[in-house]
Design a protein around this nucleic acid. Structure first.
Length: 343
DNA sequence: GGCGATGATTGCAG
DNA sequence: CTGCAATCATCGCC
C-alpha cells in the first residue's frame, strides 16, 4: 500500500521531477510529510505548456526516455492492478444497446421507397403502387412516373454516396483511435475490452449521424411523393380533342347537361380520361357556364353550328332535314347572338 | 410575373 | 351518392 502510494506520487510528478527525484521516492515522502505538495501545480502546468513548444523530436525523445525508464515496468504493473479493480465497476455500467426503433422505422421506410434496397425494382414498384393508389390518369402517368423515378434515383444516389462517406469516415476514425490506443497501451494499461468499448462508442456516434441522414432522406422522399402524387399538383389540361368531345356533348345537351353513367363512360373512353374526370369536367362546366353564360356564348355558338352541320350531314345522307340536336326546354339557357354578349 | 383558364378537391345539401 | 358552390393549385398565354 505504501509502496503503491509512493509510486503513484512519483508518477504524478513525473514530468516535473528529475530522474534523481524519481529514483528517490523518499524525497517525495519527505516533501509530503512536511505538508507540501509533491510539486507546485503551476510548475506542472508550465511543463505541460512547454511541451507544445518542444519540437517533435524532443517529444519523441522524452517519450522514449519514459518508456525506457527503469521504474516503468513497476509502475505499469501497479497501474494494471488498479485498472483491474476499476474495470470491474465499469463492467456493470456496460449496456447492450438494442436496435433503435426509430432507426428501424427509417430503415423500413427507405427500403419500402426503394432508396436503400436493391438498385432496380423496389423504387419503380413503390412508385407504381403509389401512382396506382393516387388513381393517376393513364395518358400522363408514364411521364409523371419517369420523372418521379428520376428524382427518386437522384435522392438514392445522394443518400448512398453520403452513407459511404460516413462509413468511410467512421472506419478511418475508428482505425485512428485504435492505433492511438494501441500506441498508448505501451505506457498505460488498456484492455482489448476497453478498445472494443471505445469502438462501440464511436460507432454509436456515427450511427446517430447516419440517422440524421436517413431522416432527411425520408423527408425528401415524402416531399417528392406529395409533389408528384398529389393529384392537384399534377394537373394537366385535357388535350384539344378531349375538350372538343366534352364540349360537343355539353352544348348539344344544354337543356340537360347531365350525362348518364353510360354516357360518362363513353365520353371517358373517347377522351382517354377517367369517368370521375368526366364528372369533374361537367360539374365545372355547368357551374361556370351558369355563372357567366355571356362568356361562353361564342363557344356555345361554335358548337351549336358544329352539331348543326353534323346533323345536316346526317340528314343529308338520310335525304331528310331534321331539327337540330339541341333540345332546349327546362335546361340551361341556350346562347343567342346578342352583340353585348348578354341574354 | 400577372392573370385568366382549368382540372381537382372540399364542404354542404338533398 | 350526386350535384352545387367555393376554393385551391397549376397551366399557359401575354
Amino acid at each position: 500500500m505504501d509502496d503503491q502510494t509512493r509510486m503513484l506520487a512519483s508518477m504524478a510528478g513525473l514530468g516535473g521531477l528529475s530522474q534523481a527525484d524519481v529514483s528517490d521516492p523518499d524525497s517525495v515522502r519527505k516533501q509530503q510529510s512536511l505538508g507540501q505538495p509533491p510539486q507546485d501545480i503551476g510548475d506542472i502546468l508550465q511543463q505541460i505548456m512547454a511541451i507544445t513548444d518542444e519540437s517533435l523530436d524532443e517529444a519523441q525523445a522524452r517519450k522514449h526516455a519514459l518508456n525506457c525508464h527503469r521504474m516503468k515496468p513497476a509502475l505499469f504493473s501497479v497501474l494494471c492492478e488498479i485498472k483491474e479493480k476499476t474495470v470491474l465497476s465499469i463492467r456493470g455500467v456496460q449496456e447492450e444497446d438494442p436496435p433503435d426503433p426509430q432507426i428501424m422505422r427509417l430503415d423500413n421506410m427507405l427500403l419500402a421507397e426503394g432508396v436503400s434496397g436493391p438498385e432496380k425494382g423496389g423504387g419503380s414498384a413503390a412508385a407504381a403502387a403509389a401512382a396506382a393508389a393516387a388513381g393517376g390518369s393513364p395518358n400522363d402517368g408514364s411521364i409523371e412516373h419517369s420523372d418521379y423515378r428520376a428524382k427518386l434515383a437522384q435522392i438514392r444516389q445522394i443518400y448512398h454516396s453520403e452513407l459511404e462517406k460516413y462509413e468511410q469516415a467512421c472506419s478511418e476514425f475508428t482505425n485512428h483511435v485504435m492505433n492511438l490506443l494501441r500506441e498508448q497501451s505501451r505506457t498505460r494499461p488498456i484492455s482489448p475490452k476497453e478498445i472494443e468499448r471505445m469502438v462501440a462508442i464511436i460507432h454509436r456516434k456515427f450511427s446517430s449521424i447516419q440517422m440524421q441522414l436517413k431522416q432527411s432522406t425520408c423527408e425528401a422522399v415524402m416531399i417528392l411523393r406529395s409533389r408528384f402524387l398529389d393529384a392537384r399538383r399534377k394537373r394537366r389540361n385535357f388535350n384539344k380533342q378531349a375538350t372538343e368531345v366534352l364540349n360537343e356533348y355539353f352544348y348539344s345537351h344544354l337543356s340537360n347537361p347531365y350525362p348518364s353513367e353510360e354516357a360518362k363512360e363513353e365520353l371517358a373512353k373517347k377522351c382517354a380520361i377517367t369517368v370521375s374526370q368526366v364528372s369533374n369536367w361537367f360539374g365545372n362546366k355547368r357551374i361556370r357556364y351558369k355563372k357567366n353564360i355571356g362568356k361562353f356564348q361564342e363557344e356555345a355558338n361554335l358548337y351549336a353550328v358544329k352539331t348543326a352541320v353534323d346533323a345536316a350531314n346526317v340528314s343529308a345522307q338520310a335525304s331528310q332535314a331534321n331539327s337540330p340536336a339541341t333540345p332546349n326546354s327546362g335546361g340551361y339557357p341556350a346562347p343567342c347572338y346578342t352583340p353585348d354578349g348578354r341574354l
